[in-house]
Structures are given as C-alpha cells and as structure tokens.
Design a protein around this nucleic acid. Structure first.
Length: 491
RNA sequence: GGUUCCUUGGCCGAGUGGCUAGGCACUGGUCUGCAAAACCAGGUACGGCGGUUCGAGUCCGCCAGGAACCUCCA
C-alpha cells in the first residue's frame, strides 16, 4: 500500500504503523450497541470514527471485513454479574418478547446510521445467534483449568490467569489494585474473587432469556460474545479491534483474557478506542440520564436544543474533533459545525462549474499530500478538514478567475475532492438528496421567477426584483446573485 | 482511595521543542442597485508557579481546577 496508516494502539500506548496480518486484507471488529433503547449522540462517535477507518482502509486498497455486533443478550443492568439483563428488563416492562425489543431497536439503530451516512458493516452478528460458539469457549477455558463452575454458573479465574499472563495489560491496571478498589457486592459469594467475571450465568426462575447447557439453563456472560463472534468471522487473530473508551475495562480486558486462554494469543493486534462526548463537561450516558437521542437532534425537540441539527451536521461535528479527544456538546459548537459544513459542501458542489486554465496557480500535489498525511496520522480528521477549507478557498478563487488549474490537474483535483469529501469523510449534500419527484417542476418554476427578476433588474425595477427575492426567501429558497446571473438553493 | 488523562483566543477545536492550524463569531475593506455569497486584511491564546534548554503551548516538578475508568454505559 502506498499510503501508510499510523494508528494509536491502546495496547502499546503509542502510535504505530499499521501492518495487516495478511497483505491486502484487514479484519476489523467493533463493539456495537446493546439494543434496548434509542441511539443517542454518544453512539455516533464509534460508529462514525470506525466508519471513517473502514472507508479509508477501503480507499487505500484494502479489502476490509468489518464486523460490528449487535448485543442482544448477556448485558446486565447495574452490575456485571448480579443485575437483570437489559433486554429482558425492557421486554418485561413493555410486555414484549425480548426479540421484539431487539428487532425494534436494531431497526431504529440502522435507520439512524443510514441517515448519518454510516456504511453498513460487512457482517453484523447477534450475540444470541452465537450461543453455541460461546459455550465452546467456556468449555475450552474450563478444560485449560482457568475457569471454575459454581452453582450452575461458570467464572473466569482471574488470579490463576494472572500468574502466567498479565491481566490488565490493556487497561493498565493491576490485580492488587483491583482487589482493593472493587466494591463488595451482594450475590458474589459464588465467586472466588470479586474480580472474577462470569462466562456463563445460571438463569434465575424469572429470567426469560435462557439457553440450555450442561451447567444450567442460563445465558452467556457479556464479554464472551465479542470473543466468540470475532473469532468466528475474523479468525482467532485479526487486525483491529475498536470500541468506546468506556469499554476498555472491564469489557476488552476480559475479552483479551478469554481469547488468550482459548486460543493462546491476544485476539487483535491493534486496539483503538474513541473518547466520550460530554455535555457540560460530563460524559453523556444512559446511566447519567443526560443523553440526547438522535431523533431529538434531528427534530430539535429537547430542552437543551435551540434548534434541529441535521445528520450531516452531527457527522461533521464529530469529525471536527480528533476521535481520541473528548468532545463537548453545545448549541454554539453545533451551529458552528453546521455553517462550516455548509461552506465545505457548497464549495465542493461548485467543482463541476470550474473550467480549466492554461496553468496551475497553486500546488495541488502539496495539498493532496497534506490531506493524506492528516488522515494517515491516526485519522486526524480535524486537520484534514482544515486543509479541505484551503481547497474550498481555491475553488472560489478559480470561480472568480483569480486562481486556475491546468486541464489535467483540474481532473485530478475533482477526483481528489470526491475521494476526500464523499468517499472518506462520508459527507453528502442534504437538500438535493431529499427531493426527487417534484424536483424538476420546482426548479423550472424557481428559475422562471429568477429570470423574471433579471429582467426587472435590467429595467432597474428594484421593487419587483427585491419582492421576488424576498418572497422566495420566505419560502425557503435562498438566492445569490452572481456576475452573470444567479444561484439558488433550498434552505 | 487507586489508575489514566485533560486545562489553548468570545465559542468549538488542531498542534508531541524553533515555522500562520482550521471553523464559527467579531472588526475593516473589495465586489454588488441593495442584500447574500465570495475574496482580502485584522485582533484576541496556550490554568498558576518553578525548572531543563540557545529556544517550551509542546519536556520535568509542584499547585489549582476538571474528566474517564475502578459497577451497566459508545
């Protein structure tokens, strides 16, 4: 691959040059949502971050198998081992079959991801569809003596594992600290140590999601699903594992421990973690109750929102910060993102109008190199976007004749901009894409009016000219005069 | 309490020792019948105190404030 990619690997805490296990192929696994509620702003961060990674790897020529799971079982409320299953609880409250809850919120998740122009993963497996694989791992770990059975449940023996391996190598914790900082919780008497985690849980009588096993009728521990599904679809060793920083411990640490015992090595070579979105400086999360759903962003109906924000505005907002930094929500920041995005997309849409000049007045190769350097540097989208604004400036200058590109370079420039804006950043024009049927009639009508306005202007009939402009504006049609005519767009 | 991390101009947000980040907002100008858009120009910055260095927003120490994880959360 001619374009190198450097990514920050949580395992080594350094930026490393990405080297795939198999030339030309990349296996990517990202922890997906637990489908017991509507997606909120926080869910967009990993979705968009790894969408860009997926798009960029594809762009530079890799064949990427991107697996992003749907968690529909095993994810417990309030505590890793004693709470109620999130899906089951929702189902009980709503008097639904658990799989109805799963289907409903999975569909909703897909709908919002489509609006954000997040590409679909190659495979989207569900935890409940991989119980057999998960039980197999439980058997493997038991056979190696690193798990123990207790009252129908099976727990991972962290202390024993830590003798030969480093439990905490990903999260930077050590087992002594864990002992002293883990709270005493009810219902833990089955475990040897508080930090042991469940591989299989015996279902209590009222628990509706249950599968038979030789241990008990029960369900798999939460961490197990990712080990099982990544191994099934990407092999026991694959390239990149991604997810939110809040999953680093215990989820990913446990995943490493399980897979290491089952397969003899760490599952993924590169671990990437996106940071959190904050609201008033605090993490936006379900448990804190300070989250804003995507539906609320898109229709503006939330007390903290001053207006509605489009899916592309949200996408651009996320991309204007580096994925490993926290990103603070505010109306002011969202509005700034919206304006910036409009400026970038407007500039991009003017590319088609450019005519080639005799010579080139700016260094296209340098611009391209700077852009590739930015995205290759651990997906530095804010820097990439800064360079793209430079490109927009050049487009505007070319339009007014104060800059130019030769025919050959203009073609390159157009392709390059499409690669960056559309293929890699995944931005798309919003107003046009929504219209379809009435489009032609509408445009012709508006252009008729605007041509009348030109006549009025020629006759210095400013009153009529302004009336047409103002009334169109009131209907949501923005009119801009140009040297030899007009431009218009729908707001 | 433990671990890790953060503190940049009015707002958001890049920047891992020397070179203008960028966007939004603001001010002035050019263009235009006016407006919008566009373009040009401009200002405001690195939490505090020390240290290392020829040179620090960038490295080290201390202090202050904040966050994440340690329990489910993307």
């Amino acid at each position: 691959m001619e374009n190198k990619l450097f990514i920050y690997n949580t395992l080594s805490r350094k930026k490393e040059e990405f080297q795939p296990l198999n030339e030309k192929h990349v296996g990517l696994y990202v922890c997906g949502p637990t489908v017991y509620g509507d997606p909120h702003l926080g869910h967009t961060r990993p979705a968009i971050t790894f969408d860009i990674l997926f798009r960029y790897l594809t762009h530079i020529g890799y064949k990427v198998r991107y697996v992003r799971n749907i968690t529909d079982v095993g994810h417990l409320e309030s505590d890793g081992d004693v709470g109620e299953d999130k899906i089951a609880k929702k189902a009980r409250l709503e008097e639904l079959e658990p799989m109805e809850v799963v289907q409903f919120y999975t569909d909703r998740y897909h709908q919002y991801m489509d609006q954000l122009n997040v590409r679909k993963p190659s495979i989207e497996p569900r935890a409940s569809g991989h119980i057999i694989e998960q039980l197999q791992i439980v058997e493997d770990i038991l056979a190696k003596g690193l798990a123990y059975e207790s009252n129908g449940s099976v727990y991972f023996d962290v202390e024993k594992y830590n003798k030969d391996h480093n439990y905490g190598r990903l999260s930077g914790r050590n087992i002594e600290d864990l002992l002293s900082t883990t709270r005493e919780l009810d219902g833990q008497s089955e475990k040897k140590q508080s930090y042991d985690f469940a591989l299989w849980k015996k279902a209590s009588p009222e628990h509706i999601m249950r599968w038979p096993s030789r241990f008990s009728d029960g369900f798999p521990g939460w961490h197990l699903e990712c080990s099982a599904m990544s191994a099934r679809y990407l092999g026991t060793e694959f390239d990149i594992h991604g997810g939110g920083m809040d999953l680093l411990f215990p989820h990913h640490e446990c995943e490493i421990a399980q897979s290491t015992v089952a397969n003899g090595h760490t599952p993924a070579r590169y671990w990437m973690h996106n940071n959190m979105i904050t609201i008033n400086g605090q993490k936006m999360g379900k448990s804190l109750g300070n989250f804003i759903n995507l539906e609320q962003f898109f229709d503006g109906k939330h007390e903290l929102l001053e207006q509605a924000y489009s899916p592309m505005t949200i996408r651009f907002f996320i991309m204007q910060a580096h994925y490993r930094s926290t990103l603070d929500f505010s109306n002011e920041a969202l509005k700034a993102a919206q304006k910036g995005m409009e400026r970038l997309l407007e500039g991009y849409s003017k590319l088609d109008k450019l005519a080639a000049g005799e010579t080139s007045s700016f260094d296209l190769q340098e611009l391209k190199e700077k852009c590739y350097a930015a995205i290759s540097d651990d997906l530095n989208t804010p820097i990439l976007i800064a360079h793209l604004f430079e490109a927009v400036k050049q487009i505007n200058n070319m339009l007014s004749g104060s800059a130019s590109l030769s025919a050959d370079e203009l073609d390159q420039f157009k392709t390059f901009m499409k690669n960056m804006v559309v293929d890699i950043l995944g931005l798309q024009m919003e107003s046009q894409s929504q219209e379809s049927g009435n489009d032609e009639v509408l445009s012709q009508t508006i252009e008729l009016l605007l041509n009348l306005r030109i006549e009025a202007k020629t006759n210095k009939d400013w009153a009529t000219a302004d009336r047409i402009r103002n009334e169109l504006q009131a209907m949501g049609v923005v009119v801009k005069d140009t040297k030899d005519g007009f431009e218009w767009g729908l707001k």
